[in-house]
């Protein structure tokens, strides 16, 4: 469904990723692992069209070359970015509405909002409050819900557990698990190796812009020891 072939990602003159090939098929949950600065966010940015890149990225047979951010989104690529980037002055409901900006079926949008409100009752309670007043975990839920409001075909999820308490992390991973169960295709970036690998069908391990290893859950788990030294995250 999503194919990256020998992709190089640039931030101005700096090359952050030096030729990466990744493949995600329909219904799969693929995870990108790696320490800080490995180029995980850069890779997602390149797919979403935020960062410039060379090499080939295809999505459902469309070559993404030259497509703008919004055109890629309209093909069904949704990004829940690192650091969440909710619209903090807008209300929770408005954040969700904006997520559905490309949809034209108003009743569908309304029922989807209701669905997310029933999934996350906190968001419902705060629906008319400025989203900036939500806690970090609530903001992360809003970010994911906002990305899904557009009914995307693939969800790019960048470090959803970043900076959250273990209990909240668990909730987030449970949410991802249920999305996967519903058949959503997910490309997940995580530093929380253990939890991520439990979800993943396949994984790629990056370091300083290069691919270190790839494989299914078992392969990567076996290499876990060496990985934990790289990521600095304890893997027990």
């Amino acid at each position: 469904m999503l194919e990256l072939h020998n992709v190089r990602v640039y931030h101005g003159p700096i090359e952050a990723v030096h030729g990466l090939s990744v493949s995600v098929s329909e219904g799969q949950c693929v995870v990108l692992l790696g320490p800080n600065g490995a180029g995980k966010t850069s890779t997602l940015s390149a797919i979403a069209g935020v960062a410039s890149s060379r090499g080939q990225i295809t999505f459902n047979g469309h070559d993404l070359e030259g497509l703008s951010i919004e055109e890629r989104q309209r093909l069904g690529i949704a990004l829940a970015p690192e650091g969440r980037r909710i619209f903090s002055n807008l209300s929770v409901r408005e954040n969700l509405l904006i997520g559905a900006a490309t949809r034209t079926d108003r009743p569908g949008v309304a029922s989807d909002i209701d669905y997310w409100f029933s999934t996350f009752p906190v968001l419902h309670e705060r629906s008319d409050q400025a989203a900036g007043t939500l806690s970090g975990g609530e903001q992360q839920m809003l970010t994911i819900a906002r990305a899904l409001m557009s009914k995307p075909r693939i969800l790019l999820l960048d470090e959803p557990s970043l900076g959250l308490a273990p209990l909240i992390c668990k909730q987030i991973f449970a949410l991802i698990d249920s999305l996967k169960a519903q058949g959503m295709t997910i490309l997940l970036v995580e530093q929380n190796v253990r939890d991520a690998l439990q979800l993943a069908d396949y994984g790629y391990m990056l370091n300083s812009g290069n691919l270190m290893s790839e494989g299914d859950r078992e392969t990567l788990s076996r290499q876990g020891a060496s990985m934990s030294t790289l990521t600095g995250i304890n893997h027990t």
Binding site: V50, E70, Q73, A78, F87, L90, T102, R146, S150
Partner: peptide, 14 residues
Amino acid sequence: RAASLDFEMVRLMG
């Protein structure tokens, strides 16, 4: 209004 906060994020919403 969203664009005045984070234009790129608005584009990411399509």
